[in-house]
Amino acid sequence: MTRVVAGTVGGRSLEVPPKGTRPTSERVREALFSRLGHLGVLDGARVLDLYAGSGALGIEAVSRGAVHATLVEHARVAADVCRRNARALGLTDRVAVVAERAERFVGRAAVAPWDLVLVDPPYDVSDEDLAQVLLGVTGSLDPDAVVVVERAARSTEPTWPAGLERFDVRAYGDTRVWFAEPAHPGADGGAGDPAAPGD
Rank of each mutant, 00 (worst) to 15 (best):
M1H: 09
V5A: 10
A6W: 11
A6S: 15
V16N: 01
P17T: 07
P18N: 05
P18F: 07
G20N: 13
R22G: 09
P23A: 03
P23F: 06
P23R: 01
T24W: 02
E26S: 15
E26K: 06
R27I: 10
R27K: 14
V28K: 02
R29M: 05
E30Q: 14
E30V: 03
L32D: 04
L36V: 06
G37N: 15
G37I: 13
L39N: 04
L39M: 12
L39P: 04
L42Y: 11
L42V: 13
R46W: 06
L48W: 03
D49E: 10
D49I: 12
D49K: 08
D49Q: 10
A52V: 09
G53S: 09
G58D: 01
V62F: 01
S63Q: 01
R64E: 01
T70F: 02
H74F: 13
R76K: 15
A79S: 09
D80T: 09
D80N: 12
R83K: 07
R84A: 05
R84S: 07
N85I: 10
R87T: 14
A88Q: 12
L89K: 02
G90R: 11
L91G: 09
R94C: 00
V95Q: 00
A96P: 02
V97S: 07
R101E: 13
A102I: 12
E103K: 07
R104K: 14
V106F: 01
G107W: 07
G107H: 03
G107A: 12
G107N: 02
R108F: 02
P113N: 01
W114F: 10
D115Y: 09
L116T: 03
Y123R: 12
D124L: 08
S126F: 06
D127A: 15
A131D: 10
V133S: 06
L134P: 06
G139N: 03
G139S: 11
D142F: 01
D142M: 04
P143W: 05
D144P: 00
V146A: 02
V149H: 04
E150D: 03
E150Y: 04
E150Q: 13
R151T: 10
A152I: 05
A153R: 15
E157L: 01
E157Y: 00
E157N: 04
P158I: 05
P158V: 06
T159Y: 05
T159V: 14
P161S: 09
P161V: 00
A162G: 05
G163H: 01
L164R: 14
R166C: 13
R166S: 13
F167K: 03
D168Y: 05
V169Q: 12
R170T: 11
R170H: 13
G173N: 08
D174Q: 13
D174P: 02
V177K: 04
W178S: 15
P182Q: 03
H184E: 11
P185E: 15
A187C: 03
D188Y: 03
G189E: 13
G190N: 09
G190H: 12
D193L: 04
A195D: 14
A196H: 10
A196M: 03
